[in-house]
């Protein structure tokens, strides 16, 4: 018994050992679910999409060209699955219940809102606005980190960015979230002119 690499597990699946797929599912379910949440969390469909993503991945496993990059490939499969799900379901959902549209929120928008102790739904909305105000590239790593507590290494394996890049992204995102969520009432905050370093 040892920690098999993703590539080994993929090969074993391709050889017909379906039980091996369970190891890959367990290894990546937190990341896949968080990605599904990122795209469709507000529709409460994250788990359905995550399941579907794993089925899609299994079906097309033979097309995976670099088995050692299974995580990155799986992220792509999850994104496509979520997009398809949204295309299929959102018009229907929208016609049934009006939902608040997600939009790009500026830092200024995100700063507004009550300070002090936030509870439940209010906190959720405020944090959601704060995440939406982040640059696109930061959002998924932030969700992977704070929704599922993935380590930098695990995030890196899934997004394809290096561990150092993830560290940089979460550092910059952390500063911006701090400015928005914790320092929003203080006057010396520099978030308005916050520089986003590459």
């Amino acid at each position: 018994m040892h920690r098999a690499t993703d590539a080994e597990l993929v090969f074993r699946c391709l050889e017909g050992d379906t039980d091996t797929y369970a190891i890959l599912v367990r290894r990546y379910q937190a990341a896949v679910h968080a990605t599904a949440y990122y795209y469709a969390g507000r529709y409460g469909a994250s788990e359905d999409i995550a399941q579907e993503a794993f089925w899609n991945a299994y079906r097309s496993l033979a097309h995976l060209k670099e088995p050692e990059k299974f995580g990155v490939w799986l992220k792509g499969v999850t994104t496509r699955t979520a997009a398809n799900w949204l295309r299929r379901n959102v018009p229907r959902i929208m016609s049934e219940t009006p939902l608040p549209q997600r939009r790009m929120v500026s830092i200024e928008d995100a700063r507004q809102g009550p300070s002090g102790k936030l509870e439940g739904k209010e906190l959720g909305e405020r944090v959601q606005r704060a995440i939406d105000s982040l640059p696109e590239r930061y959002r998924l790593p932030v969700i992977l980190r704070y929704l599922q507590e993935l380590s930098y290494e695990e995030i890196s394996r899934f997004t394809g960015e290096s561990r150092d890049e993830i560290r940089g992204i979460l550092h910059r995102a952390g500063r911006q979230l701090r400015d928005v969520l914790v320092r929003s009432e203080s006057s010396e905050g520099d978030a308005r002119w916050h520089r986003v370093h590459k």
């Binding site: 369970a22 788990e47 089925w55 959720g124 959601q128």
Partner: peptide, 20 residues
Amino acid sequence: LMFEALAPHQLSGDLTPAVL
């Protein structure tokens, strides 16, 4: 704050049995 706000949306159980 981030952990607290996102905690209710965490994966609630193991997906493996359903997937397999």
